[in-house]
Amino acid sequence: MEQELREIVRKLLEEGAIEYFIGYAEGFEPLHTTPCFIERGEQVQALVWSPLCPYNLARYLHQMKNGAGKVGLVVKGCDARAIVELVKGNQIQRERVVVVGIPCQGQVDLAKLEDAFEGVEAVEGKGDTFLVTVGEKVHSVEKERLLREKCFSCRHPISFEYDFVLGEMSPLVYGSESEFAMVEELERLPVEERRAFWRAQFERCIRCYACRDICYACYCQECIFESKAPRWLEKTTTPLDNQTYHLIRAWHMVGRCIDCGECERVCPVGIPLRRLYKKVEKEVEQLFDYRAGMRVEDLPPLVTFAAEEPALSSRQDRSER
């Protein structure tokens, strides 16, 4: 598949169809890939693909806003929704993006992999297993043991938005876990226990803003958190300041979050951010029957309304009287 990808990219570049291509390359060690920008045909050898490519490369499409040319990139199913949302939000023009869809075999959680094996050289997805190469040996491991949490409830392993697609279109669904199970688990707790749970999480936050900066949906010219007047948030990192940060960010995820899970992956202090954003996603889906990143024509939930909202009325007694 890598070879196929390289050939497509080489052709696109040599024909002048794109200015550059955004893909995955090997990082400082085999288990750490890193995004790469390919500008010339001879660089395509750097491109790799494996279950160790977590990055949502659509984030880098922010950079093309001011240019005029076309850009190519490789996307997993989950990342494809970002492209739809960016088009919907008028951040990119679809015709300026060449999307190479790749059937994802599920992404490996690096921490789980490192716990299970030492000295891993390569990982490959095959059916229900991952083939893990350690030295001369190839171990076959059940996917469930190594998958990233978000992949367990994956609904779109293959990009449905693409110009080229690699490999076979065989939808894979891992496990039977509901995608909102972890949210519901929290919902069952009494309100004060939830407060204590999130308090402990927010307390650790160092406000490095990695969760914001890695988010494909954070494309505001001036972020609300950087605005000096009005000043929404101080630089101080008290638990309440941090709570303000995370709540406002969660609010801004309404109708935008596609659960690429990048925020949670990059958080250095391990805040379970998906448990926050998934809540928003869940309510948006249940109240407004809206799922971000599916079709460009879909209207985001908060820019529209109906005079009678039956879905809301069941909870109306709680919100309005």
Partner: peptide, 20 residues
């Protein structure tokens, strides 16, 4: 009508992090 939608969502979010 917009307020109604927002308020319901916001309430859910606040409750989720433990604000009654």
């Amino acid at each position: 009508y917009y307020t109604r939608r927002r308020a319901l969502l916001l309430k859910e979010l606040l409750e989720h992090v433990g604000i009654e």
